[in-house]
Computed example of a mutant assay.
Amino acid sequence: MGKYLVLFLLLMGLVGCEPTEPVAPTVSVLTEAKTDDADQAFEKVTPDRQLIFPDDHGEHPTFKTEWWYLTANLTDDNGNEYGLQWTQFRIATSKSDNPGWGSPQIYMAHAVITTENSNQSAERFARGGIGQAGMTNSPYRIWLDNWVWEAEGDNPFPGKLHFADEAMAAELNITNQGELILHGDDGYSQKHPAEPRASYYYSAPFLSVDGKLTLNGESFKVSGTAWYDREWSSSMLANDQQGWDWFSIRLDDGSALMAAQIRAKDNKAYTFGSRSWPNGKVIPLKNGEIYLTPLSYSTTSGKTLPMKWRVDIPSQEIRLSVGVLRKEQWLPFTFPYWEGPISVTGSHQGRGFMELTGY
């Protein structure tokens, strides 16, 4: 437990000053780090930067936080449904580029496999600079211990993801069936109505997946769809923001929907999202165009969370009812949150994932 405590304290040190009231750890690490040393200030997200590929598939160590995020809705040969999540986070304690054990880069990885009746989850940490975790652009490879996403070229697709931890394992082949989608204003994704809080954010929402899952010693062939998110920032959230509700959905008409809101202390949520198609067409959804309404709540792991939602986007003639595969998905990680597979009915049918933080 010692190394986890040390890493936790290091991560909390990113917040700067002590908050005046309790703040969820997931939210704290995404607020701006305060420093009196201009040379140690993290790079800012600005609207005039153009994302460039394949370079921006790689790391951005001059920014405070970033993540590589995969969620997949899978089915086995018997029609059983599975949700899979793999994430690798990079969190910097300073802007320095010290080598070895002095590296300021800390990596955290999450892996989750969900069925209708069970959940297997694992969390790992490593410090950058010692080879235990990291990322290379060519060939594309991101790893922490034996959890690895790798590809032959400088693009993540086609790629292979494999991880194993005690009672679960996954070996997946991942191919991209569409274009990359830049959220917001060509990848500049604003997160606050007034303050300059933003991230660089793009997705690959049109992924096909096949491979094998292992749970409690039993293996299953699976196939399905997946969604890949890449995001990095140095000050994504403001002090008056409390957490977010995020939905990624593949709709039955072939389009993909990302809809999210960041909740604030004054109960006014900032909404953002996009609707996209495999040919690269994307319609940004701005603040005020998305209505996310909780319909019912459930208590799980001591948290009362909205488990049924209505998603209304009048400009897109979208009106969805959202239900979860499994309610007990509060993930007890160092930075805890709820994440799990969902299905939608209404104006469209579809499957995807929901994430709730800051509760």
Rank of each mutant, 00 (worst) to 15 (best):
Leu5His: 09
Leu7Thr: 13
Leu9Gly: 09
Met12His: 14
Met12Cys: 10
Gly16Val: 12
Glu18Met: 11
Glu18Asp: 10
Glu21Lys: 12
Thr26Trp: 02
Ala33Asp: 06
Gln40Leu: 08
Ala41Cys: 13
Ala41Thr: 14
Ala41Phe: 03
Phe42Ala: 01
Phe42Trp: 04
Glu43Cys: 05
Glu43Asn: 14
Lys44Val: 04
Lys44Gln: 14
Val45Asp: 06
Arg49Glu: 04
Arg49Ala: 03
Leu51Ile: 13
Phe53Arg: 15
Pro54Val: 02
Asp55Ala: 13
Gly58Arg: 12
Phe63Asn: 10
Lys64Pro: 01
Trp68Asp: 03
Thr71Ile: 10
Thr71Met: 01
Leu74Ile: 02
Leu74Thr: 07
Asp76Met: 09
Asp77Val: 11
Gly83Met: 05
Gln85Tyr: 01
Thr93Lys: 06
Ser94Val: 02
Ser96Ile: 00
Asp97Val: 11
Asp97Trp: 11
Gly100Asn: 10
Gly102Ile: 08
Ser103Trp: 02
Ile106Thr: 09
Gln120Pro: 01
Ala122Val: 07
Phe125Asn: 11
Ala126Glu: 10
Arg127Gln: 12
Arg127His: 01
Gly129Lys: 13
Gly131Trp: 00
Gln132Glu: 13
Gln132Asp: 12
Ala133Thr: 11
Asn137Gly: 15
Ser138Glu: 14
Arg141Pro: 09
Ile142Thr: 13
Asp145Ala: 13
Asp145Gln: 12
Trp147Cys: 00
Trp147His: 00
Ala151Trp: 11
Asp154Met: 03
Phe157Cys: 05
Leu161Glu: 01
Leu161Arg: 05
Asp165Met: 03
Asp165Gln: 12
Glu166Asn: 13
Ala169Ile: 05
Ala169Gln: 11
Ala169Arg: 03
Thr175Val: 12
Glu179Ala: 15
Ser189Pro: 15
Lys191Gln: 05
Lys191Cys: 05
Lys191Pro: 06
His192Asp: 15
Ala198Arg: 07
Tyr200Trp: 07
Ser203Ile: 08
Pro205Gly: 00
Leu207Asp: 13
Asp210Cys: 12
Gly211Lys: 08
Leu213Gln: 03
Leu215Gly: 05
Leu215Trp: 00
Asn216Phe: 10
Ser219Glu: 12
Phe220Ile: 00
Gly224Thr: 09
Asp229Ser: 02
Arg230Tyr: 03
Glu231Pro: 10
Trp232Asp: 04
Gln242Cys: 09
Gly243Gln: 04
Trp244Gln: 06
Trp246Pro: 10
Leu251Pro: 14
Asp252His: 06
Asp252Gln: 03
Asp253Cys: 08
Leu257Trp: 01
Met258Glu: 00
Ala259Lys: 07
Ala260Asp: 05
Arg263Glu: 04
Lys265Trp: 09
Asn267Trp: 08
Tyr270Gly: 00
Ser274Met: 12
Arg275Cys: 14
Lys281Asn: 12
Val282Arg: 15
Pro284Tyr: 12
Leu285Met: 00
Tyr291His: 14
Ser296Asp: 14
Ser298Thr: 11
Thr300Cys: 06
Ser301Thr: 10
Ser301Trp: 09
Leu305Lys: 05
Leu305Ser: 06
Trp309Phe: 02
Trp309Cys: 00
Val311Met: 08
Val311Phe: 00
Val311Gly: 04
Ser315Lys: 12
Ile318Lys: 08
Ser321Ala: 10
Val322Leu: 06
Val324Gln: 15
Lys327Gly: 03
Lys327Thr: 11
Glu328Asn: 14
Gln329His: 07
Gln329Leu: 11
Pro332His: 11
Pro332Leu: 02
Pro341Cys: 05
Ile342Ala: 00
Ser343Tyr: 14
Thr345Pro: 02
Gly346Tyr: 07
Gly346Met: 04
Thr357His: 00
